[in-house]
Design a protein around this nucleic acid. Structure first.
Length: 219
DNA sequence: CTCCCGATAT
DNA sequence: ATATCAGGAG
């Protein structure tokens, strides 16, 4: 019985090299905490599902001026709220989830966003990815690496994982990087995937780790 | 697995 | 026209 996720020392060294370069490149986390409260971050993250951050930012900019507490969302008129978040897509489902989640936050968590994985997952509309964003960005703890589409694409192009199953990719990444880097990995890969290692037109000419990348576009 | 769903880049 | 975007629920 052999394990295929046991990283070799050379692979771990290469991963560390790439991590250090990307970390220096993305020192100031541009997208990180523009959100003052965990609740703002929770709402923004739920709205982010299958939607570009540009759209979410436009919507939340006005949304957060009107809604401040879990109570505000819990008592919101669902029809009105749907209109307010409409442009982020899946608006009916997101509206329902947010209002129900906030009702649960009030009844079960004293009106405050919970800080454990299990409690976060109990909220409607909050899955593992959303929960991990809250945990890693606000509460600074993590139980793994969030494998979203950016992490998935970057990991594949850099040959950190040959798999497409997010759980297998996560295991590969966890064997390549030390646990104290796991929080940063998600943020850094997302930023790199968004601005440089893009799905459609990757900017390999501007990529600091092109030399380490087997998928780079050769001019 | 399907459905939810609008906006944007190509 | 179409692929894709900080996913999650049933």
């Amino acid at each position: 019985m052999h394990r295929d996720n046991n990283a070799l020392p050379a692979e771990i060294k290469r991963a560390g090299r790439i991590f250090r370069i990307l970390k220096s490149r993305y020192t100031n986390n541009e997208t990180a905490l523009i959100h003052k409260t965990p609740l703002d971050l929770l709402i923004a993250t739920i709205l982010s599902a299958q939607c570009t951050d540009k759209r979410v930012n436009i919507v939340t900019e006005t949304l957060f001026k009107k809604y401040h507490t879990a109570d505000d969302y819990a008592n919101a008129d669902s029809h009105q709220f749907e209109k307010e978040i409409r442009s982020t897509g899946f608006y009916r489902m997101k509206s329902k989830h947010i209002i129900r989640a906030c009702k649960k936050i009030i009844s079960d968590f004293h009106g405050k966003v919970p800080s454990t994985m299990e409690e976060l997952l109990s909220l409607p509309g909050v899955g593992r990815k959303t929960a991990n964003v809250i945990l890693s960005n606000y509460f600074k703890v993590t139980e793994g690496i969030v494998v979203d589409t950016h992490v998935k694409r970057v990991s594949k192009r850099l040959n950190f994982s040959i798999h497409s199953d997010p759980e297998k990719i996560e295991r590969d990444l966890m064997s390549l990087f030390p646990k104290n880097n796991w929080i940063a990995i998600g943020n850094i890969f997302v930023l790199h995937g968004r601005y440089v290692c893009k799905s459609r037109k990757p900017l390999c000419d501007d990529c600091l780790i092109a030399a380490e990348c087997p998928s780079r576009l050769i001019k």
